[in-house]
Design a protein around this nucleic acid. Sequence first.
DNA 1: TATGAATGAGATTTCATTCAT
DNA 2: TATGAATGAAATCTCATTCAT
Lengths: 208, 208, 208, 208
Amino acid sequence: MPRPLSARAAATRQRILDAALAEFALNGLAGARVDEIAARSGANKRMLYAHFGSKEELWLTVLERAYAAKRAEEREVDVDHLPPAEAMARLVRFNLRYTAAHPEFVALLNQENIHRAAYLQRSAEVPAMYSPLVDSLRDVMARGAESGEFRGDVDPMQLYVTMLGLGHFWVANRHTLSTIFGQDLGTGAALEARERHVVEVVLGYLRP
Amino acid sequence: MPRPLSARAAATRQRILDAALAEFALNGLAGARVDEIAARSGANKRMLYAHFGSKEELWLTVLERAYAAKRAEEREVDVDHLPPAEAMARLVRFNLRYTAAHPEFVALLNQENIHRAAYLQRSAEVPAMYSPLVDSLRDVMARGAESGEFRGDVDPMQLYVTMLGLGHFWVANRHTLSTIFGQDLGTGAALEARERHVVEVVLGYLRP
Amino acid sequence: MPRPLSARAAATRQRILDAALAEFALNGLAGARVDEIAARSGANKRMLYAHFGSKEELWLTVLERAYAAKRAEEREVDVDHLPPAEAMARLVRFNLRYTAAHPEFVALLNQENIHRAAYLQRSAEVPAMYSPLVDSLRDVMARGAESGEFRGDVDPMQLYVTMLGLGHFWVANRHTLSTIFGQDLGTGAALEARERHVVEVVLGYLRP
Amino acid sequence: MPRPLSARAAATRQRILDAALAEFALNGLAGARVDEIAARSGANKRMLYAHFGSKEELWLTVLERAYAAKRAEEREVDVDHLPPAEAMARLVRFNLRYTAAHPEFVALLNQENIHRAAYLQRSAEVPAMYSPLVDSLRDVMARGAESGEFRGDVDPMQLYVTMLGLGHFWVANRHTLSTIFGQDLGTGAALEARERHVVEVVLGYLRP
DNA sequence: TATGAATGAGATTTCATTCAT
DNA sequence: TATGAATGAAATCTCATTCAT
């Protein structure tokens, strides 16, 4: 446990992390420039190295923070009191919206997968940071199956991946898809259309 | 129209492209090393620049070829004679298997999206390279709707993106997912399980 | 307005400029080697790029400084109090001596003209850096014409170019001229002979 | 003495030389590209090397030809039958016009002087290729001195250099001078104005 | 003689990292 | 803690020249 930082140092650290998130999301790990991060953060390179040691450590820290931020928001999603279908719709919608609102998280994940999760595997935090969504999902599905509203043969992990994928792919590949289809998928209307579709897919699939 | 290359030049060009595909998929555009590509290809840097002009042009060419290769395989998929449900299952399976068999294509796409499709937009070829899968999908859905086997309110483009996403996300993020879930998603068994799931999702959703 | 450099940075910058002037004068823009400039300057290549951005920007800066240096010396030439003929002789002599003492300036000019003044045209400084010699020349000629010592039909700009050319050509082409004529024009005696001649040419011409 | 070339080979050689002259004049020795010369000439690089051995040998050949071409035109200038002043004016005009009409010759000279005449010194031909203008000049001056039209104290070599310089500097530096003075010295009118001036300077100086 | 492809040495430029203050 | 300057390794790219046909 490092000794607590002064408020000033903590602020510097935070600014560097914010700048790094933006730069990494924009250009990837290899493409990101340490100079640019330092400049954007208003700090300087020496500080960056004092706080994080290397570009790669900084990357890992940024990645951990991105996961933690998502987990924190997931924790706010409360569906226990809702009927199963509505609960499931809410989970699906949350995921799509979060993904659409945080394309930088998507970009980080894609980059990290290019590196075969090499940095994530070194993380002490992330693997322990179980996604609350998985529990919610499992619970909703159990309630739905019990009430007869949902089919009973669903693997929660597969459905979780599906739920993520339906939003993630659309967000992650919105630029190439926009180019191929010749229409802008970055608009609010496009997001709403996608939202309706993914909710229908999941609920349609879950019908018994 | 460039003049035709000699057999020797074409072979060199091909070797460079193959090496570049591997290196780009492994390390991304910024992370890829021109030296490494030249060494792998058995050619030398000078030839790489003679044929492609710059690392970025080479990237674009590799990307175009990857799209072309996928489109070529898609053209082989023949589902016209099959009943709609079976035809749809085959399309979904093809897509997952192709994606799983070509993680380098997934990696290229992810990288290209980091660059906001900047290179793809400069491509004269790719946007014109319409995916045969879209036509097949549209046709199968029409047949299914007519026969009453499928629901009739489906946007083919959304379903196409969904179909891609169900496989792509799983392949693209298999490293982070494996790390998070603590199980190896790269095995044949894992692929088969995913295959069963995605077919069920799509066919389940399409029930009227 | 760039912020002021530290004394250390300014010294490094100066050493690079000095080394660059020598290297550019010796080998031209294309022929100059960035490695050589860095080595001569005692700095390293990285600093060269930090200060100047590119070889071409460095060239432009060197060129601007060379013009500025000449203009600065010109400002020291004071002929207002001298009788016209003597004043004119002094201007002509100054110009020849400066040119002979600064063959590197001549070399830069020749190079820049090969590039059709492409860099000079991008300079904000140089075109605004009016030559004090032109004013001196104009003034002396007016005084001479008034007193009847000089003819009155002379275009000052043409005479200025003539004055420059009489020295510049001799210095710029001293190597080919030496080779053709089989005698060394680089000696002090040769310079003195040339000096007598050019003064005679200009004063001879100016007789009414 | 190399054996005579076939007509076809001689034509190829000629095309290469023409292309090289243009490229060298445009970009200097270091800046010229062998590829470009080969492409411009319609030949290919192998031919260039077969004929000339190296870029530097090609440079020397181009330089020798440029000198030879000037000497050939000088030989056509016939002033023996003209009165001295008119003869001198014609020599001066010829020189300015030739220089203005052949800026590529000026560019070659400047480049060669950057190399301290290193290539010219290796030439067997050029130093032996005495300029006919020098003889004409000497003769005209002698006639003028004898008749009392010209002063008698003029060093012909100095005057020769002066005559060359009055035109050469103006042509060689027309780009920087145009930039500095903010007017285009490349026009026909500018050339005529310069012509009047240089004739006046020389004849004015030569008055007894 | 002619040609397209290939090459190796070396050029310019970039970048993560460390030093000196 | 903070900062501007400096560095060396390595990246991309270029070019005169030679090879293979």
